[in-house]
């Protein structure tokens, strides 16, 4: 009993401190219109999968999460969701189940950073506002010429200036090459339907997916490249009406099957020609020849 009351006392104290800090932050933001550290962090680390106030994305909408869950739980969960799921925490399990197959990767993040993000969520929840990414804006308006430039970047005809690999090595969209692009990442044909514009821009600026983070963390896209790629991805036309429904699933097209069959047939004939002198049995043909 004593422990619990101590806990509630301590958390009450923490709450008041956080409230104070949050109030301070809001006032700063209100005065200078500069994004709070929480907002910058959220945009960079969380926004590719989470919203505040505008619905579930790959992960749940975080509006009101600080009211639904305890602080300790949030801290622990953010640092290692998988560990908590393994441990059998019922809430973690429910989340994993709901958003399968997406799995939130473990975050390399400090307690202070988490607190800043939670403060932002708290504030927006209280004010009943939605999070609008401050940095998720294009550096200039899109022009029609950007579409083709973006395509060149996507297929790797022009190299990314910071040395990142071309998108096509992991992604495909309809209309790039006969054999399409890579299959490691998802098909990006309908990516403009999957994400709203600011979200897509935020991803291009800061791809916080485990694979992309390691690849592009030290080699980010430049503002100009973001504009061009954004323009291209917005304008990719699905090849078939069903493509959108099948986005992300590899398509098997008839011409591909035909080519595969022809190549296989060629290989079989070729190997038979190369090894035409091999022994195909001696006794059977001898008996056949002698008895016919």
């Amino acid at each position: 009993m004593k422990g619990i009351s101590m806990m509630s006392m301590r958390s009450g104290f923490t709450w008041s401190v956080i409230g104070l800090c949050a109030g301070l932050l809001i006032s700063i933001e209100a005065r200078g219109q500069a994004p709070s550290p929480g907002a910058t962090l959220f945009e960079k680390r969380c926004y590719s999968c989470h919203n505040i106030g505008s619905g579930d994305k790959k992960g749940p909408d975080l509006k009101g999460v600080t009211l639904r869950r305890s602080r300790d739980w949030l801290h622990e969960y953010i640092k290692s969701p998988a560990a908590m799921n393994r441990r059998g925490d019922p809430e973690a399990r429910a989340l994993f189940k709901k958003f399968a197959p997406e799995v939130m990767p473990d975050q390399d993040i400090t307690d202070e950073q988490i607190d800043a993000i939670l403060a932002l969520i708290d504030e927006l929840t209280r004010k009943n506002e939605t999070f609008v990414p401050a940095g998720a804006k294009l550096s200039r308006p899109v022009t029609p010429a950007d579409i083709d430039l973006g395509r060149q970047l996507f297929v790797g005809r022009r190299a990314l200036s910071n040395g990142g690999p071309a998108c096509i090595s992991c992604h495909t969209v309809s209309g790039v090459g006969r054999l399409g692009g890579g299959t490691l990442g998802p098909d990006l044909t309908a990516v403009n339907v999957k994400y709203r514009d600011p979200e897509l821009i935020a991803i291009l600026q800061n791809p916080n997916f485990p694979t992309m983070k390691t690849v592009f963390g030290t080699r980010p896209l430049t503002d100009e490249e973001i504009v061009q790629l954004f323009a291209y991805l917005q304008n990719v036309k699905p090849a078939h009406p069903t493509t959108q429904a099948l986005a992300g699933i590899a398509r098997i097209e008839p011409w591909f099957v035909t080519i595969g069959f022809v190549v296989l047939l060629g290989a079989i004939i070729g190997l038979n020609v190369i090894w035409k002198s091999r022994l195909r049995g001696v006794r059977e043909p001898l008996v056949r020849r002698s008895t016919s």
Binding site: W275, S277, R278, L279, R280, G281, V282, R283, E284
Partner: peptide
């Protein structure tokens, strides 16, 4: 070249 496919082996039937 023929290491993995020795083409001159007798069959069991032989």
């Amino acid at each position: 070249i023929n290491l993995f496919h020795n083409p001159h082996l007798p069959k069991l039937d032989d």
